[in-house]
Computed example of a mutant assay.
Amino acid sequence: MDMPVNVPVDDPNADTEWNDILRKHGIIPEKPPSPTPIIEEAILEAQRRAHENRLEDKDLDELDALEDEEDEAFLEQYRKKRIAEISTLQKASIYNQVYPLQKTDYAREVTEASSNAYVLVNLTSSMGGNTESRVLSEIWRQLAGKYGEIKFCEIRADMCIEGYPERNTPTILAYKDGEIRKQFVTLRELKGVRTKIEDVEKVLVELGAVKEGDLRLRKRSESDEEEDNSQEADDGDDDDWD
Rank of each mutant, 00 (worst) to 15 (best):
A174W: 01
A174G: 05
A174I: 05
A174F: 06
A174C: 12
Y175G: 15
Y175W: 15
Y175E: 11
K176A: 14
K176F: 12
K176V: 07
K176M: 14
D177H: 15
D177Q: 07
D177K: 12
D177C: 09
D177F: 04
G178E: 14
E179M: 15
E179D: 09
E179A: 13
E179Y: 11
I180V: 15
I180T: 09
I180R: 04
I180K: 07
I180Q: 05
I180M: 03
I180W: 02
I180D: 00
R181P: 14
K182G: 03
K182P: 08
K182S: 07
K182C: 04
K182R: 13
Q183Y: 01
Q183V: 00
Q183L: 06
F184E: 08
F184Q: 05
V185I: 08
V185W: 00
V185D: 07
V185P: 00
T186I: 05
T186K: 07
T186W: 00
T186P: 05
L187R: 14
L187Q: 07
L187K: 15
L187M: 11
L187H: 06
L187P: 06
R188F: 09
R188I: 03
R188E: 02
R188P: 00
E189H: 13
E189D: 14
E189A: 12
L190G: 04
L190E: 02
L190I: 04
L190P: 01
L190R: 02
K191S: 09
K191D: 00
K191E: 00
G192C: 00
G192S: 04
G192K: 10
G192E: 04
V193D: 08
V193M: 03
V193C: 02
V193I: 01
V193H: 02
R194D: 02
R194P: 11
R194I: 04
R194F: 10
R194Y: 06
R194L: 13
R194Q: 09
R194W: 02
T195S: 10
T195K: 11
T195E: 01
K196P: 05
K196N: 14
I197W: 01
I197N: 04
E198T: 10
E198L: 08
E198K: 14
D199A: 07
D199C: 08
D199N: 04
V200K: 13
V200T: 00
E201R: 08
E201C: 06
E201A: 12
E201G: 07
K202H: 06
K202C: 12
K202S: 10
K202G: 08
V203M: 14
L204V: 05
L204I: 08
L204E: 10
L204N: 13
V205D: 04
V205H: 12
V205F: 09
E206P: 09
E206I: 04
E206S: 15
L207M: 09
L207Q: 12
G208M: 12
G208W: 04
G208Y: 03
G208R: 04
G208V: 13
A209Q: 10
A209K: 09
A209D: 10
A209P: 00
V210G: 03
V210K: 07
V210E: 05
K211N: 11
K211A: 09
E212A: 15
E212P: 01
E212V: 10
E212Q: 15
